[in-house]
Design a binder for these strands. Sequence first.
DNA 1: GAGTTGACGACTT
DNA 2: CAAGTCGCCAACT
Length: 116
Amino acid sequence: MNPKSSTSNDNFFEKVYEVTLLVPKGRVTTYGAIARYLGAAQSARMVGWALNVCNTYRQWVPAHRVVNRAGQLTGKIHFPGSNTMQELLESEGIRVEDGAVVNFENHFWDPNIELQ
DNA sequence: GAGTTGACGACTT
DNA sequence: CAAGTCGCCAACT
């Protein structure tokens, strides 16, 4: 078989999308939490990169539910609109202020705890 | 083919 | 206490 299977069955990326899709509405998670869940706690950047290329993948991923450790919408600049990410979060009941999630800890959803 | 950047996180000064 | 620096690993130029 072709080692570089074009089916894009990348374990890591696929897993990132899966976890992101599992994030309940009205909840948010962090890159580090996902990375840790995948066993790559030191590669939080790869999670962000995975979401960056999620547009080129087969399906849409609620990347707006993924924020950095400080609860800041650091990735909003990668969205089509200026504040598309914030609009989506507010649409789910999450309050966003100055590009950061309000009561972030209250909305935090950790796959390591919730999925176990 | 090599160098640089990047949706982060944790450590050091 | 706050700011700066380093490390991860893959993709892009």
